[in-house]
């Protein structure tokens, strides 16, 4: 970890020289060959809502700006739609790298402004662990409650229920104990802390 001063602005910035190497090692994906043609950022459907464009995230990883990257909203907003990876002339697999960065952020206890999305993932996986399948009513209710937004989508939820799109009771798979073993085996990420 090194603190550098940016000549133009005088701002101090923390740099982790080994960060790019670590991200490559964990994700198993190359990112050094990115030459910032911006195809990923031009095609990204969520770019308008991100704090940094996808290629800027890659650039910041290349530069070792670990804190900025792991606390960014971009990594959480990526929809894994694969537009970027499909169009990249250098075959950089951005969605997989974004997943790695999210996992690293969780491992290091970094909460981004998108904490609601982290909560959603936790609620989703807990539901899966409990039943083996997704139960939308439990997921919706618990998530909206935990994020203190219980009335968002309530109208839509009622419409969906009337149309028979929501099952009130969850169905549990038979061998849910196998999922419990999977969660115990893989649930705690084995990946290295920074």
């Amino acid at each position: 970890m090194k603190v550098i001063t940016i000549a133009k602005t005088g701002d101090e910035e923390t740099v982790e020289p080994g960060f790019a190497e670590l991200v490559q090692q964990i994700s198993g994906k190359e990112l050094r060959q990115c030459y910032h043609c911006l195809k990923c950022s031009a095609g990204c459907p969520i770019n308008f809502a991100m704090d940094w464009a996808p290629n800027q995230i890659i650039r910041m990883v290349q530069l070792g700006l670990q804190e900025r990257v792991l606390s960014s909203s971009t990594i959480w907003l990526c929809a894994s739609c694969e537009t970027c990876s499909t169009r990249c002339p250098n075959e950089v697999d951005l969605p997989t790298i974004m997943d790695t960065l999210k996992e690293m952020a969780i491992q290091n206890g970094i909460r981004s402004q998108q904490a609601g999305i982290q909560t959603f993932h936790r609620v989703f996986l807990n539901c899966l662990r409990e039943y083996g399948r997704m139960h939308e009513v439990s997921l919706l209710a618990l998530y909206k409650l935990l994020t203190l937004n219980p009335f968002e989508d309530m109208g839509l939820g009622i419409k969906m229920f009337r149309k028979g799109k929501l099952n009130l009771l969850p169905s549990r798979i038979e061998n849910v104990h196998e999922l419990e073993t999977i969660f115990r085996t893989f649930g705690e990420s084995k990946r290295s802390k920074i």
């Binding site: 894994s80 997943d99 790695t100 999210k102 996992e103 969780i106 982290q118 959603f120 993932h121 936790r122 989703f124 996986l125 899966l128 083996g132 399948r133 997704m134 798979i173 999922l179 999977i182 969660f183 085996t185 893989f186 649930g187 990420s189 084995k190 990946r191």
Partner: peptide, 19 residues
Amino acid sequence: NCCGASSGHSTNYLLGQAL
């Protein structure tokens, strides 16, 4: 069982694959 998309792979690579 649920394939885990997208919460599995978004937060824990190996768990996502295992599910």
